[in-house]
Simulated scan of single mutants.
Amino acid sequence: MLIKDAPVIWEGLRSIICVYKPPSVTCERVRKTIIAAVCKGLNEMECRPPVDFVCIEGNPSGKLTVSVKPSLADDPLVVGPRYIHDDLKCSWSNFLGFNTSGVLLLGLGKGTKVAKLIRENRPTRCYRLSGKLGEATDNAFKDGKVVERTTWRHVKLENMNRFLATLQASHQKEMFKSCGIDLQSEEAYKLACQGPIRPANSKLPVIYGIKCVKFEPPEFVIEIQCINEYETYLRSLIHEIGMKLHSSAHCTAIQCIRHSYFTVENALLRKHWTLQDIITNMEQCIQIMDEHENIIRQKSAALQ
């Protein structure tokens, strides 16, 4: 339903939105762009009229007349637009680096509390990392200076899959060790049934799943499910893969394709960052969260 009343929409800003962050753009730039789009859309709608000004005129010793008229001190032409950038709260639930593109969750208005709750629950994220064999750069990314060139034709898909499986197994083993549980015990099985194990240290990157989804040497694409990751770690991971395969590699692109329940299919592209599309996306995000909460309740009831 199309709402044309700005105050109604302003009060309805109480959840999160899912946008697609382009590469080479900071999260702060995206945040300011979204705020500007919302305020611009609200100011173009029907805003509240100026407050009434009670005017008493006449001779104090004689008859006085009382009139009510719109206050010029509250007119938008005098005080400026009704909705300004500083009035709208906006915070991200997941931080993406400068070179990373993909799913970015933003809380608008009272929805900043929802964004904070998702952030504190530390859900897993899924990335697609593109790499190139044969060259190593000083920052492990494509815009860095090439510091080493090596051969790569000996690298096979089987070798890469073997190393990725070993890497995933080592991360899972370390997770159980940090909990003080034997990996072969029944307690470890019950703990694994409850879902991904969260590390006590929120700054420790943990890989829950990693696989090669595209291998066209020297180009390749890795899909990784992880937590507590950051851009530098993801770039260095591609560099490490190159070294372990007796070659070298650098990262060419980083894309976040899933954050919690939200995927790139739910994300608004830059051309759709308008007020009406943002409101529609917010309603979709609320529906997605409600659906998954019902699924979680059903699974919890079944386990009990």
Rank of each mutant, 00 (worst) to 15 (best):
Met1Arg: 12
Ile3Pro: 06
Lys4Val: 12
Glu11Ala: 03
Ser15Trp: 14
Ile17Leu: 00
Cys18Arg: 02
Glu28Thr: 06
Ile35Ala: 04
Ala36Trp: 06
Asn43Met: 10
Met45Ser: 00
Cys47Asn: 03
Cys47His: 00
Arg48Phe: 10
Gly62Pro: 05
Leu64Glu: 05
Ala73Lys: 13
Ala73Val: 11
Val79Gln: 02
Ile84Gly: 00
His85Ile: 11
Ser91Val: 13
Phe98Pro: 05
Asn99Trp: 08
Thr100Ala: 07
Thr100Cys: 04
Leu104Arg: 01
Leu104Tyr: 06
Leu108Val: 02
Lys110Val: 02
Lys110Ser: 07
Thr112Cys: 07
Val114Trp: 08
Ala115His: 00
Lys116Leu: 15
Lys116Ala: 13
Leu117Met: 10
Glu120Leu: 14
Pro123Thr: 12
Arg125Phe: 11
Tyr127Phe: 13
Leu133His: 01
Asp138Arg: 10
Phe141Asp: 14
Asp143Thr: 15
Val147Ile: 15
Arg149His: 04
Trp152Ala: 06
Arg162Pro: 00
Leu167Lys: 12
Ser170Asp: 15
His171Met: 08
Met175Glu: 05
Ser178Gly: 02
Asp182Cys: 05
Asp182Ala: 15
Leu183Gln: 11
Leu183His: 09
Cys193Ile: 04
Ile197Asp: 04
Ala200Leu: 14
Ser202Met: 11
Lys203Thr: 05
Leu204Arg: 11
Pro205Cys: 01
Val206Glu: 11
Ile207Gly: 09
Val213Pro: 06
Lys214Ala: 09
Glu219Tyr: 07
Glu219Asp: 09
Ile224Ser: 01
Ile227Arg: 07
Leu237Trp: 06
His246Met: 07
Ser248His: 05
His250Glu: 07
Thr252Arg: 09
Thr252Phe: 04
Ala253Ser: 09
Gln255Ala: 10
Ile257Glu: 03
Ser260Asn: 13
Tyr261Ser: 09
Arg270Pro: 04
Lys271Ala: 08
Trp273Phe: 07
Leu275Ala: 02
Gln276Asn: 14
Asn281Trp: 04
Met282Trp: 03
Met282His: 02
Ile286Phe: 11
Met289Ala: 12
His292Val: 11
Glu293Cys: 07
Ala302His: 07
Gln304Ala: 10
Gln304Tyr: 01
